[in-house]
């Protein structure tokens, strides 16, 4: 149980001369939610693409259950149980729930010599899978994905990944485009997936959402892990500070204070007004 499902050791990734990831060391255990925090451009997407087999690390190694693994293509990662759910969940808005649930692994039944797509089984399985996650409003597998709300789509995509035996679930900003209520649905589903013993990697820049579900947090800054801590070790303010690049914000603070001291407590004028004066 204590052995991590997925482990990265000194992973580096560079595109030509540009280093995107520096010496990333991360572990995630079964039934644990690892929150990956970071500002835009911190390397979050490169990291998850590396985990999902889209990119190959330039150096360093990945381990699953303690054994070294390399992924040549996304399918290799998927076959080992690493599933990625993207921001908008279902990517086929014009396909039905049943059909998109089984893209690539369609159930078939035999009619004479022909293998026929089994729509009934596909729809029933898809609806059942998503209802087990508590989304009871999805009850007709013939509905189009495009007709679902953002939260429902995310839930469906997560339910799909779990149904197909995901062991590591990578959620790429699942709550970014959602309202408060929808986001809480998705967070509840993240907890449900965790309860089932799945290792969840939850990428977000919303600290509130991360703190609601996370067991383990890692903050990425300019492609390096700037902080790696467990639940309860840091406060929300500390995390926010870290994400914004801590020092930079502190520098800005002292600069402001210094200016106000020498200017009788006035903050700096906006540039346009300053030139007029």
């Amino acid at each position: 149980m204590t052995e991590p499902v997925l482990e990265l050791r000194d992973v580096n990734k560079s595109f030509g001369p540009i280093d995107v990831l520096h010496d990333i060391n991360l572990t995630v255990k079964a039934g644990e939610v690892l929150c990956l925090l970071g500002d835009n451009g911190a390397g979050k997407s490169t990291l998850i693409k590396t985990l999902a087999g889209v990119h190959k690390p330039t150096s360093g190694q990945m381990f699953m259950d303690g054994k070294a693994v390399t992924f040549d293509k996304p399918k290799d990662a998927a076959d080992r149980g690493i599933a990625t759910v993207h921001q908008f969940g279902g990517t086929f808005p014009l396909m039905t729930i049943g059909r998109s649930f089984f893209v690539g692994v369609e159930p078939t039944r035999k009619i004479g010599p022909f293998k026929v797509f089994d729509r009934k089984t596909a729809n029933e399985t898809a609806v059942k899978a998503v209802q087990e996650f508590g989304i009871t409003r999805i009850d007709d597998g013939d509905r189009l994905i495009g007709g679902l709300s953002g939260g429902e789509r995310q839930s469906l995509a997560i339910a799909r990944a779990v149904h197909f035996g995901a062991r590591v679930l990578i959620l790429d900003e699942p709550t970014a485009a959602l309202g408060v209520k929808q986001a809480s649905h998705v967070l509840r589903i993240v907890l449900e997936a965790k309860k089932r013993g799945i290792a969840v990697i939850f990428i977000t820049h919303q600290v509130t959402h991360a703190m609601a579900v996370g067991d383990h947090f890692a903050v990425l800054i300019r492609g390096a892990v700037a902080a790696n801590f467990m639940r309860g070790e840091k406060s929300r303010e500390e995390i926010t500070d870290l994400m914004a690049g801590g020092e930079a914000l502190a520098d800005l603070d002292t600069a402001m204070e210094g200016y106000m001291e020498t200017h009788e407590g006035h903050p700096p004028q906006p540039a346009s007004r300053a030139t007029v004066a």
Binding site: T91, F92, M95, V103, E106, K115, V116, F117
Partner: peptide, 15 residues
């Protein structure tokens, strides 16, 4: 409309 290939076709055009 009734084979796996058909489903692939729609998936391919969708994304």
């Amino acid at each position: 409309h009734h084979s796996r290939f058909g489903n692939w076709l729609f998936a391919m055009g969708g994304d």
